[in-house]
Amino acid sequence: MEAFAYVAPKSLAEAYTVLANGKSSQLLAGGTDVIVQLREGRRHCDQVIDLKHIPELMGMRWLPDGTLEIGAAKPLAEIYEDAEVARRLPGLIDAASLIGGIQVQSRASLGGNLCNASPAADSPPALMVLGARLVIGSSSGTRELPVEQFFAGPGRNVLAPGELLLAVKVPPPGPHAASFYLRFIPRNEMDIAVASAGAFLRLDATGGRIEAARVALGAVGPTPLMSAGAAAALVGQAPTREVFEKAGAAAAETATPITDMRGSAAQRRHLVSVLTIRALEGALQRAREAR
């Protein structure tokens, strides 16, 4: 492993100063991706900036409108072990509890999972269908953007030099609404998604008609993808198997998969349809249970 300096700022102001010191930096939250990448020579830097000592990045709170604000470096285990989060946002828990094993989840964070920008990451599709927004800060202030606009390509995000991802804001799904996320892996653990799908459904008061829908896909394009076609196939329709199958077919058209050691393009396109249907079925069940 190459030599680098280690810096652990205690405040955001200190972190922005370190970021601006002219050295090439690697941000460290849980480190479950970054440490491995540094060891394997896949990333290089002069300094590693450990963000876990900055209180703003480690918190989690409910805002007055029911939005959940999660500090970017908050460990996943602390998110999914929160009973209120699990009750209100099960679709977020689907992803948070899938990333890595128990030890990894005690360190790994949503912010790290997002910034690493793997097309196969589990949290982006789950957050995209929930309509999550990201809070990005720098020495000159903060900005917000929808999570689906954060990714620039495999391993690349839109953070500008000097910027930090501060928090993830997940709005409340509302009544008769819920999301669901799942992935396909060949084994039952120790694997990365071959394809994944998240789905969000809001039903009308009778439960017989879909008022709003979102479908997001992982591992089938250079970034996580929103499927506008799948959403269009759902809105205004009854939540039936036939409608879900149409949405699955539309999602498969959104996908632009490649063939690699984890799966073939044809397999992935096929899986997108299967997983979209299963995600919609999961979301439907939750939406019907949600009050």
């Binding site: 060949p186 084994r187 039952n188 120790m190 694997d191 690699d260 050691m261």
Partner: peptide, 29 residues
């Protein structure tokens, strides 16, 4: 039988030379 293989690209490079992508069964499998 089910998952293990040396997966080669066209240049003769093994693309899955880690236990993440060389899929031996885990205890859950």
């Amino acid at each position: 039988a089910l998952n293990e293989e040396y997966y080669y690209d066209d240049t003769g490079r093994m693309a899955n030379s880690s236990f993440l992508d060389y899929r031996m069964p885990t205890t859950l499998d």
